[in-house]
Every structure is written in C-alpha cells, then in structure tokens.
Design a protein around this nucleic acid. Structure first.
Length: 692
RNA sequence: GGGCCCAUAGCUCAAUCGGUCAGAGCCCCCGGCUCAUAACCGGGCUGUUCCUGGUUCGAACCCAGGUGGGCCUACCA
C-alpha cells in the first residue's frame, strides 16, 4: 500500500481565490482523485491558509480590526471557493496555529544547533509614522540614475537600472507619505550552503521535479555558493516571534511551508492517525504541487529545513506555469482577472476543471484560457460527445434496464478497457490532456457505433425490442467507461451518472466489467452547454466598477434622424448575441473595411447558402467574394449596389462540389440565423474608400 | 548581458527507441440522419513539421548555426 501525502501551495490570506489560483488546486485535486481510484494506495490531501506577513498586518491596520479576524474571514472565503470547484481537502488548516508555531520553532532550533544562524546588521528605510521598516515595494522616489520620479525602491521601470532603496532621491513611504529614515536593524540569516552537496543530489534525482525546473536550479543557483537566507523580520510584524531572539519574527516564507506539516498534524489528531507515519516516515511519498514562481522556496530552502528538522523529504515537486487569458496576463481592466466566486456565479465549475485538464501536460508551460476555445471545447467534447451519449441511449433503457448479458459489440468495450493502463499512466504523469484525448477517442467511437446500429429505427419495428436494449446497453456501458476515466476531472458529472446508471465511479477497474441487468434511471440533463453570453457576463462583472462595461453609444448617436415612425427597439438582438470582448483601436485598425460596388452576382448551384459576388474597389481592383446570403437576396437586386467589405481578410478556400474556389473578402451584413441585411454606405461614398 | 524552454494544418495540440507519423479535434464546405442538449454520422479542405546546413540507408525527432516567441535573472555565474 503506497502512502501519499499531497499538498497544494498555501494561498495567501490577503486575497481571494481567482481562476489563476485554481489551475493549481484543480490540478492537484484531479491527481488526488485519480490516485484514490487506484486500489493499492492511500492518499491524503492537505492545504492551509498562509496568513503571516506585512500585507495582512497593513490591511488589519487599514481596516481597524485584528489580523486574526481578517485571516479567519479569508480562510472561510477560500474554503467556500474551493468547495465550489470541488477541490476537496482532507484538512484545511492555517499557518497561524499553535501546531505551526511549534514546528517552526523545532526547525529553527535545528538550524541553531548546527550553528547555521548568524546575525547581520542591515541599514534599512524606516517609516517613522507607520513605525515599521519598509520593504522595497513600499518606498517610492526619484531614480538615482535617470531621475525619473515615482519609482519603486528596487528598480526603475523607465531606465531599467537597479539600486538600493536607500539610494532613491526624495524617498517617500507609500504607507504614510512620510520621509523614511535610515535605521539599522538586526536580521537573522540561515546558512544553507553547508547542504549544497545534498541539494545537488536531491534536486537532480530522477522524477523529483520537472526536468526544466531541475535544469533551472542547476544552472542558476547550484552552480554557485548558495546565499544565506534572511528569515527574520523586525517588529512590528504579524507572525511568530523567534523564541531565542526577542523582537524578531519568522519571515512569512519561513513558516509558510511548515504549514504543510502543521496542517497534517491537525488532520492526524482529528482522524486518529499517527503523525509520525506521514512526516517522519520514509514510506510516505510527499508530493507538493506549486507554481513556478515559488520554486526556489520549495526546492532549496524547504528540503534543507526538512532535512535538518528530521522530516520526510518530498518525493516529487510538481510545478505548473501561470495562467493567461486570451494569450495575455490576467487583466482587471479587461475583465479577465476573474475571481473564483465570480466564475461560479456565471458558469459551471466542472467546465473549468475539464478545460484546464485538457490543457495540462507534464511540462511547466503556461496555460492559456482562451475564452472562445473554452466555450467551444467544453461544448463540443464534454457535452456534445460525452454527455450526449448518455442522453441518446439511456432513454431506451429506462423501462428495461441493461440487457441481462452483455451483447456482442464489435470489441468496443474491450477496446475501452484496454486503455485502462494508459489512462493510469497519464494521470500518474500529470498528463491530463492525454486523458481527455483518449476519452474523446472513445466517445467518437461510441457515437459512431450508435449511428451504425440505429436504435431509433429498431425501436419502430415490432419484435426488435431486445435489439434496442442490446444496442443501448452497449452505448451506455461505453459511456460508463468514458466517465470513469474522466471522473477525477469532472466529479459532479460522475455523481450524476452514478445516479443514472446505479453504479459508482470510484474505481478505474470498473471499466473492465460491463453492467448487466441493472436498472437505468430517468434521464435528466447532466450538464448544460455553455452559452457565450455567460462568459461575457462573467467578464463584464470582473471589470472594475469605474469603467462602464459597455462604453456605449450616446442616445443622440443612436437616434437616426431619418426615422419617421418611432421604432420599437427591444433588446432581443443584444440578448441573443451579447457584446464581444472590448477591442482596442489598434485591434480595430487591423480590420480594413472598404466600400465596394457589386459588379456581378450569381447563384452558385453547388452551394446551398453562397452567392458568388464580383466586387470592385475602383479601377482595376476586383475581388471575388462568396457571401452566405443566397437565401435572402436575389442576385439581380444586388448588382450595382455599394456595400462594405472586409478587404484584408485572409483568402479562404472553399470546395463547391468538385471545384475549388477562393473567397477574397467578406461582405458585411447584420442579422442572426434566418436573416441577413447587407450594409451600405450613404450615397456619395466611392468604391475603395476605407471605413474609419 | 546571462540562462532555460519552445516553434507541426486558420486555431488547440498528437506522433513509444530516428523507420507507413505527417495525424486528431475545432473551424469551414458538401452530404446523411433525427434517438439525442441546433446534438450525431460520413466525406472534403488546409502543412516547405520556422529557416539553412550536417549526421544517417532513412530526420518532425539527432548535431551546428540562424530567425522568431516565451519565461527566469540580472553588470555575479
């Protein structure tokens, strides 16, 4: 029996969980759930809030309440967010706990006993009003190099030079506006260089961490003597006082990872487990999941702390990249800095779990949440392919249940069972994208099978009842295999399916045995398709309140003077097709819109929707454009008309019957499905003029 | 400035050891079907596997150089 202790990094108590955080917790939760579906292992998933440090202290001052009040409130909010996303911990603790204080002191003593602690005196800027030492990001002033005003205390974003905060001209505290004074402060450093050789071996061990991470450490830190680590902060500081150094507190990054241990201890006491089995046992495999920004803490300092303290060292440090949205950093102004709670308000957490899984591989690359692809992929793969399998086959079995014996299925079920080991390997190796790929292949095959077998046709023939049952039993058993494989990724879908099929989805092994004879429940939708409007609404809500969501048309602009009768403009069009994401003027100028005259228009017999238009941009400039307006316009009505075309649209090849044609632009038209209104300029416009 | 990673169809990505590996899904077009959530099925379209050399019987894969991205970090390697 393997014993696994898995952790995600501890979220900081100063902020709410957002969709970037969720990459990590979803990734970890999926891995944990997958491990639990394999027989010979025991898995405990531990997390906690990271509570200490200057940021929380300052917020407490600002809001006039205690730090403890704040961190309790945040812990509750974090846990609610995680629960919404089906991230389930065995225990969720806090670094502000007696247990954590105890272990922090224990590890500190270990450093002391080895003589690895030394004291240095540092000259640092001090805010006499706020009464605290200022970290670089709390000091602003004029760059000593290029004289740019308003630069932070570590480097200048104008000239790029780096300097010490004490070199700033006219420094100011961002907390109080006071002029900081130079004060001496004592700091305690721990020396980790004596463990250099240990880290050389430990970090480079096969499978310890992703290869690129190991390379990074080797090329960046381990090729030089390791610098001592400053682990103390002078009072005032929200944190634990260092026992043998009054007035000094453990730096937040010192006690944060120790929270893994403390939280485990709380869990062990809670459930009656022996703590020593989990953190003092070479039998236990500890797995940390972290983002690439905190690699240094988890792969250099942390193992040394553990080793000196006599704790079990991690077997694996799994590292993921950052989240981008539509190819860019999450942005508050663009509405892509989405809080977990905002997402959950508009969209199904299962969808995000699936999408993240479909993009998560074993490497440390960043993950892009492309909102259009998100809608597309979840709908196409999860709903259309997978869930629809249950929808289209379970109804046939509502009365009869599964066939008594599993019918001949052309080897489909056996093929589904055969990928069992591949799926387990993919999970083990954090390659969830591969899991979804395999599952989609199975779903494609199952759908094709149903189409071939045509149970709906059989259902109309007398005496074919058992055939209908056989076909549907096969389809639903294939569905069960697929959902079993996906269960760690989409646990709620698995639960819903369990109710429908009357079986559980808690063991991968189940894919090897088909269900027979058992009853099938009444079908209810297990998952809904995502409407693009939901995504738009979520993005809009995520934008800062000051910026109007839709910097809209003024009433004057909207009121067209030629309108004779008062038009009734209801909001249905906007509701059907909500506003796209904001684009910049630069985005807009990429699109070259031109006035064009339709010279010829002809019906394309091979096509249902298209008309072939030849348009003139003036002079020799002619374009052949195919437009999907055959159903709405007669060719002869179009000839001679001025229209607006997108003139720099990439040419598009289309195959009409056996001939290949190319469309060299697009005619602009309004309207949804079932209607089309071609745009025209007012009279006087000339072909070739650009629309600005 | 240094280091690391990456580059395959319009998009997202596959391709065990160098040997039918040039593929899938989405998009788009055509056709079919109607059990199913405008879902499903079949067919079609799209590639100098970034470029240039090299190694090899054979390269998307190995080597060298270049170009273009991304990340980390900085006068320290």
């Amino acid at each position: 029996m393997r014993r696994l202790l898995v952790t995600s990094a501890l979220p900081y108590a100063n902020g709410h969980i957002h969709i970037g955080h969720l990459v990590e917790y979803i990734e970890t939760d999926i891995w944990v759930r997958a491990q639990r579906m394999i027989d010979d292992r025991r898995v405990v998933y531990i997390c906690a809030d990271d509570t200490h440090g200057t940021a929380v202290m300052l917020r407490a001052r600002k809001e006039g309440r205690s730090e403890v009040e704040i961190i309790n409130e945040m812990s509750e909010a974090h846990q609610k967010d995680f629960a919404d996303f089906r991230v389930v911990f065995d225990h969720y603790g806090s670094t502000h706990s007696e247990e954590n204080k105890g272990y922090a002191r224990e590890i500190w003593r270990a450093f002391r006993q080895r003589g690895l602690v030394r004291s240095v005196e540092v000259e640092q800027l001090y805010d006499p009003v706020a009464k605290l030492f200022l970290a670089d990001r709390f000091v602003k002033g004029t760059c000593p190099n290029c004289k740019s005003p308003d630069q932070y205390g570590d480097n200048c974003d104008k000239c790029g030079s780096t300097y010490d905060a004490t070199e700033l001209i006219d420094p100011k505290s961002t907390l109080s506006d006071a002029k900081p004074e130079l004060r001496k402060a004592e700091h305690l450093l721990v020396d980790i260089e004596p463990e250099h050789a240990f880290l050389d071996v430990w970090t480079q061990a096969e499978g310890r961490m992703p290869r690129e991470t190991a390379n990074y450490l080797k090329g960046f830190f381990l090729n030089n003597p390791l610098r001592a680590w400053d682990v103390s902060r002078p009072a005032p500081y929200f944190g634990f006082e260092i026992p043998d150094a009054a007035g000094h507190h453990f730096y937040v990054w010192f006690d944060a990872p120790i929270g893994y241990i403390a939280s485990t201890k709380q869990w062990a006491d809670k459930v009656g487990e022996k703590f020593e089995d989990w953190w003092r046992s070479p039998e236990t495999e500890i797995v940390h999941v972290i983002g690439k920004d905190i690699v240094k803490f988890h792969t250099l300092f942390w193992p040394v702390m553990l080793k000196l303290g006599g704790f079990t060292l991690p077997r694996r440090v799994q590292v993921h990249g950052f989240l981008t949205v539509d190819g860019e950093k999450m942005s508050k102004s663009k509405g892509t800095f989405v809080m977990a709670s905002t997402y959950a308000k508009h969209l199904d957490p299962e969808c995000l779990r699936y999408y993240y899984a479909s993009k998560l591989g074993p490497s440390v690359s960043d993950l892009d949440l492309n909102l259009e692809e998100f809608v597309n992929r979840v709908n196409a793969e999860l709903v259309n392919k997978v869930v629809n399998l249950a929808s289209r086959s379970s109804r046939f079995l509502a009365k009869t249940g599964f066939a008594a014996t599993y019918p001949d299925d052309e080897g489909l079920f056996a093929a589904g069972a055969a990928v069992h080991d591949d799926i387990l390997d993919a999970y083990e190796n954090w390659d969830f994208a591969k899991v979804t790929r395999i599952a989609m292949e199975l779903a494609d095959r199952a759908n094709a099978y149903i189409d071939r077998a045509q149970p709906w046709a059989l259902a109309k023939q007398a005496g074919k009842e058992s055939d209908v049952q056989a076909v549907s039993s096969i389809a639903l058993n294939l569905y069960r295999q697929i959902v079993t494989y996906l269960a760690p990724i989409v646990p709620r879908l698995a639960e819903g399916s369990a109710a429908l099929l009357g079986c559980s989805f808690d063991r991968f092994d189940a894919v090897k045995t088909p269900l027979t004879s058992s009853p099938v429940g009444a079908y209810q939708h297990l998952m809904k398709r995502i409407e693009p409007a939901q995504v738009t609404a979520m993005v809009e809500e995520s934008k800062p309140a000051e910026v109007p969501a839709t910097a809209a048309l003024t009433p004057e602009a909207a009121a067209v003077p030629t309108a004779q009768t008062a038009p009734v403009d209801d909001g249905s069009a906007m509701e059907k097709e909500p506003l796209a994401a904001i684009c910049t003027i630069d985005d807009f100028t990429k699109v070259d819109l031109r006035v064009a005259r339709i010279v010829t228009a002809e019906i394309v017999p091979e096509s249902k929707k298209l008309l072939r238009l030849s348009v003139s941009l003036g002079g020799e400039h002619r374009r052949t454009v195919f437009a999907g307006i055959k159903a709405y316009y007669k060719p002869e009505d179009l000839v001679g008309r001025l229209v607006i075309i997108c003139a720099n649209l990439a040419p598009r090849q289309m195959k009409l019957g056996k001939t290949e044609v190319t469309s060299e632009g697009m005619v602009l038209a309004a309207g949804a499905a079932g209607e089309a209104f071609v745009l025209s300029p007012d009279s006087g416009a000339k072909p070739g003029q650009r629309v600005h």
